[in-house]
Write a protein that binds this DNA or RNA. Structure first.
Lengths: 141, 141
DNA sequence: AATCATTGCGCAATAG
DNA sequence: GCTATTGCGCAATGAT
């Protein structure tokens, strides 16, 4: 979860991403194609070398790794989303539980209050009986 | 699990997106270059037309729109993350609140229980006094 | 060394 | 027409 900082990929890329989005309509089968540009510097890029690099990227295990990674990515993101959803769900549940608890507290408090009042009343009655100091209160006797 | 049917964005072009992120690398200086592939269908792509399309994508407002969108995307994702984080935070808070409430309930329950017991005890005492059915118990009055 | 998992990022489609 | 959201693939990096 912690991520200091991540600067893109700035190694030394002249990464020429060639993406061909050929749906399925026409039927053209476009294979990644590169055209080495002759540099002003003079050092022409050895086509063979170039080809090699491209080959690296275009097939072999590269494509396979990409595909695997894409799957992993999808999986990871799905999980992430699921988790977020679960968390939200949890919030809702907790909120409900919370209300339930608050209601219970309210009830208990009320009960307690009633009992306490009864107690006080009784205490007074007892006091009246035991210590009939009050004039009118004792009159009944 | 493959995706031979990658119908991504199928507008109508065989869009060959060439992106060159050349930071400062040493070697080739690849300027966006397109190589129209001869179509199997026969309909050769008019270079001029092609060029136009490329121009559209490579500069003018395209680049600008992309940049704006990239910003929007970043913003959106930041928000999304923030929200997820907030939700998690909320869960924690609610959990704490919950524990607090449960503790309170426990306390109140205990108090109530004590009071009730006292009540029962008193009730018994009163019963003894008020209903002296027992022979010797009534003698005192 | 290999592999999967996570994450930032850009693109394009699409929703608002 | 513009921003916001979303799915997707890529590459770097983390974690095994």
């Amino acid at each position: 979860m912690s991520k200091p900082l991540q600067q893109k990929h700035n190694t030394e890329q002249k990464s020429v991403s060639v993406i061909q989005s050929q749906g399925k309509g026409g039927g053209l089968q476009q294979v990644p194609q590169l055209v080495p540009i002759s540099q002003g510097g003079g050092k022409a890029v050895p086509p063979s070398k170039m080809k090699k690099t491209i080959a690296d990227k275009e097939s072999d295990e590269y494509r396979q790794r990409r595909e695997r990674n894409n799957l992993a990515v999808k999986k990871s993101r799905m999980r992430s989303k699921q988790k977020a959803q679960d968390t939200q769900q949890r919030v809702n549940e907790l909120k409900e539980e919370n209300e339930r608890l608050e209601a219970k507290i309210k009830l208990l408090s009320k009960e307690l209050s009633v009992l306490k009042d009864l107690f006080l009343e009784h205490a007074h009655n007892l006091a009246d009986n035991v210590h009939p100091q009050s004039a009118d209160a004792a009159g009944g006797q």
